[in-house]
Design a binder for these strands. Sequence first.
DNA 1: GGGGCAAAAGTTTTT
DNA 2: CTTTTGCCCC
Length: 677
Amino acid sequence: MAREYTVNTLPATPKSDINYAADLNDQQFAAVTAPPGPSLVIAGAGSGKTRTLTYRVAYLLDNGIYAANILLLTFTNKASREMLERVEQLVPHDTQDLWGGTFHSVGNKILRRHAEELGFEKNFSIMDREDQKELLTTAIAESGINTKELNFPKPDVVADIFSLVQNMDCDMAELLEWKYPYFEHHLEPLQKVQEKYEEKKLATNSMDFDDLLIKTLQLFQENPNICQYYQKQFEWVLVDEYQDTNAVQSDLIDMLAAPHNNIMVVGDDAQSIYSWRGADFQNILQFVDRYEGARRFVIETNYRSVPEVLSLANAAIKPNRAQFEKNLAPARPDAEELPALIPVQDVRLQAAFVAQRILELVDEEGIEFSEIAVLYRAHYHSMEVQMEFTNRDIPFNITSGLRFFEQAHIKDVASFIKFAANRKDEVSFKRIVKMLPGVGPGTADKLWNQWVACPGYKDEKLAEFSEHMLDFKVPTKAKEPFAQFAYTMDELLDGKGGTEAPPAMMPSIIEGVYDDYMKAKFPNYDIRRQDLRQLERYSQDFTDVDEFLSQLSLLAGQDAVEANKQKKSNDTDVVTLSSVHQAKGLEYKVVFVIWLADGMFPSKKVIEHDDEDESGLEEERRLFYVAVTRAEDQLYLMYPLVWQGSYTGEVIQRPSRFLEDLPTDLTEEWKVGAASW
DNA sequence: GGGGCAAAAGTTTTT
DNA sequence: CTTTTGCCCC
């Protein structure tokens, strides 16, 4: 008798109508159409890296490769979304699934499928920095270390140390010697805490951001069959911003690409700005040595900036010694206007100038707000500009340090959902009960212990929280609110051991308990209530709780807000205020770089603590280079002459050493006076 | 667990 | 000079 066997075939991709030869220059064409095997694309700023990468995807699809076999790795959600959108525009492939995204989101997806192999459950919680700090605090306490006695590092610093150890794949002893010599005598207690922390993560079924990468790598190393599955699945691996990969990311890439070596990495060593997070641009410098037979493509034409801006950029990066020699050539005609160098009396005037100049550009040159960006080294540098913009009604969008999800009220509401989905989530549980009157860290701990000890904790078919929790010993003041909390939690369950869908959970939480709490707790109740409505709308897109929570944790604030905005309206004509780090990969017609004073940019810390090869200073210089190369047409470099520090009094500022390095004929100095103040 | 007071920081950059 | 943290006491 014949055996029946079905092969699942994917529908063929419709061909795009791209004429690669006409759309690309020679170097790009060569890279896009490169045969299988490893290739390294070194490309300067504004050279069309993204374009090259997306065309590469389109080219592969056009040549019969299934989208599901291509893995496109990027660093930010924005970059990932934009790239996928471009691909979908170029090649319609709605029948197939292009599996790409950020390193963290890909790691998250893979880990959810194989969590059991690592001792986790697939509904594990993702901890952000704040959650991580909470868990570390308990880990430190449970390790029995007397933190006061020996000036033990704060949980924040401990988190930094652990993160670097993992991302740089190095010994804790080495790291302490190199970066934290004043903590070297704490090596043993630190290792003890680390062990405890790992235990706690397992016990609470939670992972931090670093785990999403490290545990994926570990999964592959310990399970060759799983590793082979993904190697086969992702037959073509493409990586953007390769210069910013750290040891773990580079290992992960190497591992996935190992058998077929159909890997293309794209990057610019001059734009490596994440070494403080463990990024090592040796990865890109040594790529050709690591991958036998690697082809190297250098794209040196710059399409973005006018020659005047480009000359300045080239001069800015020149003093750096650790770099590939590149000679960026402009593709655009002269602008007949030099970048402006603008010393101003003080910060107030700096903000006033930026605002006034922007209004002129919009009124007289027909430039839109959205084509203008104000960039700075650190978020607090933007304070005065924000105030000035508000006063003058200039619409702006700020990529602030705070993510949407990191705001207290958003996290509060999410912690209900997190605990309903993952009943081992100690951090979320404690966060919720600490909102109840009369419950602080101590009582929260006692309540948690009662939960762990009760049968509900282990009940996979748990239908009600209240049936267990109403028996808990609770302080009198919190008795009734605690019962209310338990009943609210009941509503989040589907009665069959799982949870309701995210859109159904939101009203239960908000109307059940949180709205009243929020009114009492926050002075700006209205604004926060609106945020929660936004979160409610956002939740409508999800049926799966884990997916909803993952998105919340992994999406940066701007992404979440923008994802919503697009649906509502397109009133996005706003000026961008951004740190240089967050502006990576973006471009604007007009760019203002503010606070270019020595000690601010480059930052004081780097100047004071740099080692003899000036690697810290060189990174700051690359950062300056990134800032400058965001500009297409006009560039304004500014610094205040005095700074009214809040506690230091008036401090005379020197211009940034990066400005002093520039030949004077590359900029035009503007003298700004105040009319009347 | 929270109020009250005194001492000590405080100014990177992020998935 | 402010804001946050640390400690004591009720």
